[in-house]
Structures are given as structure tokens and as C-alpha cells.
């Protein structure tokens, strides 16, 4: 009997080791461990054994069963793992194929420039002021110290709708309107972006419609050094810490003193090249101390208050910053152009 059990064990373990798949293993399980299996059959003869031998034989039988069950389990696990492996191998994909494109668009480059400037100045305590694109002659010119017949009106030939109404030629009327709203009380600290219009034929460097962004600070004790410091912060943020700035005297009817700001040319590092026309400097913006007439007309006491203002063209900044060579690109909206401004350095 003992021998028979051992025999069965050896026989079963051998079958298990050669079982090719899970089904075969299951068949082995049923045939050896089932109720009608050979071990059960052998144990039926237990009655003939002595009382001492019976538990021994029982224990041996259990041992044989366990060893077969363990063998099956081990083999089964092996087969399962192999099956998973095989399945995974079959599922292999080409990871170098392109991914599914996510549809995205992006900011227009001018919006990108304007928002960057807005955020910089918001960080310095400015708010963003906006105003109408169709303006009264008064706000566009007169309130800015450009009375009718002023020769400087030549500088900005305009689109008039009636004698008193025109498309604004700069965003400065927003400054005049904002100051007026403050009713003679400072501080005023605003940045004004928007579209402006001038009678120009569209070509590589001119556009009848373009953007402007201006800043204005009016308070007691605003100094020209404050203007210089503010513009330096701006220039370094927009064009890089290594750029130098210079202020050059200039003329605008609404500021006195007036300056233009140049930054050192990035292309040649100040030595002079075609981009900077050999000067080593590139003109970026106009600025100055708010003209007392402008303050007075907006209801500020020019003896008590001073202020500075600056204005620039986002197109020009984008052209310099990104090397765009034709202003018309900004208004043609060629997607091959627009797409390039999705990257953020």
C-alpha cells in the first residue's frame, strides 16, 4: 500500500512536469486527486490495516496528495506566467509611431507681447486701462497739447470720420480720459494697450492699423530718474539683462522733457551692424515727463503733480524680439506664422 502511494506520487509528479498546458494540468488534478482517483481507491483498503498503521498510512496519503497538489499549483503558475508573457509579447506596439495630436491653438504674437508687458507692469502696481478706438479730436489731440493747426499734427495724419471724430492715432487719449476721471487726485498708474490707426500705405514697415501700449504715472514727486529706472526694468525684462539702455532727447507735444529710449543692439553687441544702422543702438520707445498743459487740462495741479509717460509699438518689439521682417505678417494671419508663437522660451 505504501509502495503503491509512492508509485502514484512519482507517476503524478512526472505527468505534471510534462503537462503542456492548463487543461492537461486540470485533467491530472481530476484524475489523481478526484473522488474517483487512484489515491482514494488505494485508501479504500485502509480498513484492512492495523490501528497503529492506519494513521501512518493516512498521513502518508495526505503527504502524497499535498505534494501532487503543490506540484500542480507550481506548474499552473508557471503556465499562467508564460501565458501572460505570450499575450504581452503579442501586444507589442511601435512606440516610435506619432501620438494622437491634441488640437491646440495659441496667442497671436502681439497679444503675447502685450500680455507680457501688462503683467510686468501689473507687478509694479499698474492697472490696465482701455478706451475707445474711435475718439474725439479733443482727447486724441487737444487734451494732449496738440491744438488745432499744431505742426506736429503733421506727424500723424489721421482717419477722420467727422471734423471732430477720428480713429485714434495713439493710445494716449486713454491717458487723458483716465486722468480726467481721477479729478485731479493722484496717484495714477496705468498701462494702456490697444489698436491705433494712421493714414499709411501698408508695406513692410508701415501699417494703417497697429498696436500701441503706453504707460502713465502721475503723482507728487515723480522724477525723471523714476522714468529711467522704470524703463530699465522693462527693457531688461523684455530684451534680457545684458542689454544696455540709453535715453536720448526727443520731442513729443505731450511730454517735456521728452526722450527716446534705445537699447544696445543684440546682433552686433553695440559695434554697429545693418540692424542698428551702424549705430549700435535700436530705438524702442518714446517717453517723457508729462507736459504741464496736459496735466492742467486733465484737472491736475501741475505745481503739485508731476508724471511720466511712455509709449511703444508691440509690432516693433515683436519684430525685434523674434526677428519678424514684415509688419504685414501680423495682420495676414498665415497659420504658418501664427503657429510659431506657441513655444514659450
Amino acid at each position: 500500500m505504501q509502495e503503491r502511494l509512492k508509485e502514484l506520487q512519482t507517476e503524478a509528479l512526472e505527468k505534471i512536469s510534462t503537462a503542456a498546458d492548463l487543461k492537461e494540468l486540470n485533467d491530472i488534478r481530476v484524475s489523481y486527486l478526484g473522488k474517483k482517483g487512484p489515491i482514494t481507491e488505494v485508501l479504500k483498503g485502509m480498513g484492512k490495516l492495523s490501528a497503529e498503521e492506519r494513521p501512518k498510512m493516512g498521513a502518508l496519503a495526505n503527504e502524497v496528495r499535498d505534494s501532487i497538489a503543490a506540484g500542480i499549483e507550481q506548474k499552473q503558475k508557471h503556465h499562467e506566467e508564460a501565458a501572460v508573457k505570450q499575450k504581452l509579447a503579442a501586444e507589442k506596439i511601435d512606440v516610435t509611431l506619432p501620438g494622437r495630436p491634441v488640437k491646440t491653438g495659441n496667442h497671436h504674437p502681439l497679444t503675447r507681447i502685450i500680455e507680457e508687458i501688462e503683467d510686468l507692469f501689473i507687478g509694479m502696481g499698474y492697472t490696465v486701462a482701455e478706451g475707445p478706438e474711435v475718439e474725439k479730436d479733443y482727447y486724441n489731440f487737444e487734451a494732449l497739447n496738440l491744438p488745432k493747426g499744431h505742426p506736429a499734427r503733421d506727424m500723424q495724419d489721421s482717419f477722420y470720420i467727422t471734423e471732430e471724430i477720428l480713429l485714434r492715432t495713439h493710445t494716449s487719449p486713454v491717458q487723458a480720459r483716465t486722468m480726467e476721471k481721477h479729478e485731479g487726485k493722484g496717484p495714477v498708474k496705468i498701462i494702456c494697450p490697444g489698436k491705433v490707426y494712421r493714414r499709411d500705405n501698408d508695406d513692410a514697415t508701415h501699417s494703417h492699423q497697429f498696436m500701441q501700449i503706453e504707460g502713465l504715472v502721475v503723482d507728487e514727486n515723480i522724477r525723471m530718474t523714476d522714468l529711467k529706472g522704470t524703463l530699465e526694468v522693462f527693457a531688461k525684462k523684455m530684451f534680457g539683462d545684458d542689454r544696455e539702455i540709453r535715453l536720448r532727447p526727443s520731442f513729443f507735444p505731450f511730454t517735456e522733457p521728452s526722450v527716446e529710449m534705445d537699447i544696445s543692439c543684440k546682433i552686433c553687441g553695440g559695434k554697429g551692424c545693418s540692424v542698428c544702422k551702424g549705430t549700435g543702438w535700436i530705438e524702442i520707445l518714446g517717453a517723457g515727463m508729462v507736459h504741464p498743459n496736459v496735466l492742467e487740462m486733465a484737472g491736475f495741479d501741475s505745481k503739485k503733480y508731476t508724471g511720466f509717460a511712455f509709449g511703444m509699438g508691440p509690432e516693433r518689439i515683436a519684430m525685434l524680439k523674434y526677428g519678424v521682417d514684415d509688419i504685414r505678417h501680423f495682420y495676414t494671419n498665415d497659420v504658418r506664422f501664427l503657429k510659431q508663437f506657441s513655444i514659450h522660451e
Partner: peptide, 10 residues
Amino acid sequence: GLYQAVTYSL
């Protein structure tokens, strides 16, 4: 998925 355009007012 939309690109921002800026076009002329006139």
C-alpha cells in the same frame, strides 16, 4: 484648438 487672429477694423 483655435488660433488667435488679429484683423483690420476697416
